[in-house]
């Protein structure tokens, strides 16, 4: 079977070559099922729906089928993770407000299994929470978009077709993978001591805030050496915690302020602040989603029992 090059299901990390069909779809050869689909169903359009509310589920299934999707339905997060690992879906929809589906944890489990294969299946949340903070949290957890509940048929169609067209999403994927690796290695260094890890993360937040303030004050008063000094420190601490983008921006700010080129500095500092905020929001979610202790190699990785989405107001 040829790789589904144009499909929205395979998102690769840019530097890597295109994975072969066997690598991307290891489970496909073992699936004996593909019987001839009913004529109106496009075989390339397969959706996984995780929804334990029968009413919402029925509406979602109807819309998906109308749009030509073949739908697999599950009523628990664990089933969703298993099916997502076995099959290839063009889109996954999860009820993120349901404890049984366990939105964020489920998504992170799916992403963890996809990452090594270079796959990024679009995941959409079915949710009643649509505020800015909710959206940021979802993005941090690896969710691409959302369909607001109660489901409006036209809105759902619009979101689905937008994701069918938009095929670029590797940036988030890399960021998440990086953050996840960073937190895991920090955790290893701190011997799985969650408090120490938390302390480091807090220290990073505090230090970054102080340095950003120093940069802004320095810029406002024309004290470029002070901006350079703060940017230098920021480069050090962000590099140390694996915050690559922050490290790059800090490096630019440091270079610009050392050469006395004040123009454009304000924008870079602003950009650094935004990047920092996004990172911190991803971290707080990733951190809260990490299992309490480093998973034992020999044992099956525990799936969080309480799959309640983390919410902060």
């Amino acid at each position: 079977m040829a790789p589904k090059s144009a499909g929205i299901r395979v998102k690769e990390i840019p530097e890597e070559r295109e994975p072969s069909a066997e690598e991307v779809l290891p489970a496909l050869s073992s699936v004996a099922e593909p019987v001839t689909p009913p004529p109106e169903i496009d075989p390339d359009k397969r959706a996984l729906l995780g929804e334990d509310n029968p009413v919402n589920g029925a509406v979602a299934i109807r819309v998906l089928e109308k749009l030509g999707f073949e739908v697999d339905t599950v009523t628990s997060g664990w089933e969703a993770v298993q099916l997502a690992g076995q099959n290839t879906y063009s889109v996954i929809l999860l009820d993120c407000d349901s404890p049984a589906i366990g939105g964020y944890h489920t998504v992170m489990e799916i992403r963890d299994r996809e990452n090594p294969k270079g796959i990024w299946t679009p995941i959409l949340a079915l949710t009643a929470y649509t505020m800015q903070w909710d959206r940021q949290q979802r993005e941090a957890a690896g969710i691409d978009g959302y369909i607001a509940k109660p489901i409006q048929v036209d809105a759902m169609k619009a979101v689905l077709s937008r994701f069918a067209e938009d095929q670029s999403r590797p940036a988030t994927m890399q960021l998440l993978a990086l953050d996840r690796n960073m937190l895991t290695s920090l955790r290893k260094l701190t011997d799985g001591d969650g408090n120490q890890l938390e302390e480091l993360v807090h220290l990073f937040i505090e230090t970054s805030g102080r340095l950003l303030d120093q940069m802004e004050t320095g810029l406002a008063s024309g004290d470029l050496p002070s901006v350079a000094m703060a940017a230098h420190s920021m480069r050090g601490s962000s590099g140390q915690v694996g915050a690559k983008r922050m490290e790059e921006i800090s490096s630019t700010i440091e270079a610009l302020s050392r050469t006395g080129a004040g123009s454009g500095l304000g924008d870079w500092i602003q950009e650094l602040r935004m990047t920092g905020c996004a990172k911190i929001s991803r971290w707080s979610i990733l951190h809260s989603c990490l299992p309490p202790k480093p998973p034992c190699r020999s044992a099956q990785r525990p799936f969080p029992a309480a799959m309640t989405p983390t919410r902060r107001s």
Partner: peptide, 17 residues
Amino acid sequence: EDDPLIARFLGGSLTGA
């Protein structure tokens, strides 16, 4: 080390060792 994060990071690792 003037960076508190790096100091904490390395200091913690050294103490742990």
